[in-house]
Computed example of a mutant assay.
Amino acid sequence: MSAAAGHEASKDILAVVHENLNVWGFPHDAVNFGFGAMNLKTLVMTWIVMGLIVIFTVAATRNMQLKRPGKLQLMVEEMFQFLRGLAYENLDPKKGASLMCLLFSLFLFLLFSNLWGLIPTMMSPTADVNTTLGMALFVFILVQVLGLYYRKLGYFKHFFEPFVFFLPIVLVEELSKPLTLAFRLYGNIYAGEVLIAVLLGLIPLTATIFGGFLASVIWLSFSIFVGFIQAFIFTMLTIAYVSQVTAEHH
């Protein structure tokens, strides 16, 4: 079989599996709402993820105790302290403390989004490049705003260092940051879902279980690991970018 034929066969397998998994009847193409087209399934999954995060955080902090904390409370506290340690290592405590709510919310959203697609018939919002690109652009704008806030007009100095003719190179570097953030996250999560779909198409025994979803235990465990790692990398790079532009000596 040629490479082209193999590629077409893989596309056919993916199409069949995705159709079997589409038990909710989501449209395959973007829906036009009058002000622009968007993927309805991504929109619904994003709102579901946000609702799950609210339920999770409320359940973990509703009955907080100092002496005998619950399991959810311990989980949230450990994640928060871990992110706080990263922020304080790269930023001074005052700047780091002001960003903790944002960083913690960002990490939770990424984590839940990355893992949500592993549930039968669901999809990770971060498996859509529009989601990851939107988040990356938000981080990019945040970095520029914080750079201007903390360094005032001196922030623009680094665009011309060490020489003025380096400006195009520095601009390309700045603009590449949101692109690398977006496509790194999207590529890893989307590739994981595609490989799971391919495995399902190759194993007929699992094609009728849970609406066509039952990945192998090894690959599912690896996908969970990737979901955690990608959420950590995105958040860590956000901290690093903020640290670069807010440092007194850039």
Rank of each mutant, 00 (worst) to 15 (best):
A3D: 06
A3I: 11
A3Y: 07
H7V: 12
H7S: 13
K11P: 02
I13F: 01
I13E: 06
V17N: 02
E19K: 12
E19N: 09
P27M: 00
N32C: 07
N32W: 03
N32K: 04
F33N: 05
F33K: 08
F33M: 11
F35W: 11
F35V: 08
G36V: 01
A37M: 12
M38Y: 04
M38Q: 03
K41N: 04
L43P: 00
W47M: 13
W47I: 09
W47Q: 10
M50Y: 07
V54L: 15
V54M: 14
V54E: 15
I55W: 14
T57D: 14
V58D: 15
A60H: 06
N63G: 05
Q65K: 13
K67P: 00
L74A: 11
V76T: 06
V76M: 08
E77Q: 12
E77W: 10
E78M: 10
M79F: 10
L86S: 06
A87H: 05
Y88V: 04
Y88F: 12
E89L: 13
P93K: 15
K94H: 09
K95I: 14
C101L: 15
L103Y: 00
L106M: 11
L106I: 06
F107S: 03
L108T: 01
F112P: 02
S113Y: 06
W116A: 08
G117F: 04
L118I: 03
P120S: 14
T121M: 10
M122A: 12
M122E: 14
T126E: 08
T126H: 07
T126A: 13
T126S: 12
A127E: 06
D128W: 02
T131Y: 03
T132C: 13
L133W: 09
G134E: 03
M135N: 00
A136E: 02
F140G: 08
I141N: 12
I141L: 15
V143W: 00
V143Q: 09
Q144K: 10
V145H: 09
L146Q: 14
G147T: 01
Y150Q: 08
L153A: 12
L153Q: 13
K157W: 09
H158P: 04
F163S: 09
I169C: 04
V170G: 02
V172S: 05
E174F: 04
L175Q: 05
L175N: 06
S176G: 15
K177C: 11
T180Y: 12
L181Y: 09
Y186E: 01
Y186V: 07
G187S: 10
G187E: 04
N188H: 10
N188W: 12
I189Q: 00
Y190K: 13
Y190Q: 11
A191W: 02
A191D: 07
A191V: 08
G192F: 04
A197F: 02
L199I: 05
L205D: 15
T206R: 09
F213K: 05
S216I: 06
V217T: 15
S223M: 13
S223V: 03
F225K: 04
F228H: 00
A231M: 07
F232H: 02
F232M: 10
I233A: 10
F234C: 08
F234K: 06
T235N: 07
M236N: 10
A240H: 09
Y241R: 11
Y241V: 07
V242M: 09
V245G: 01
V245R: 00
T246V: 11
A247G: 03
H250M: 14
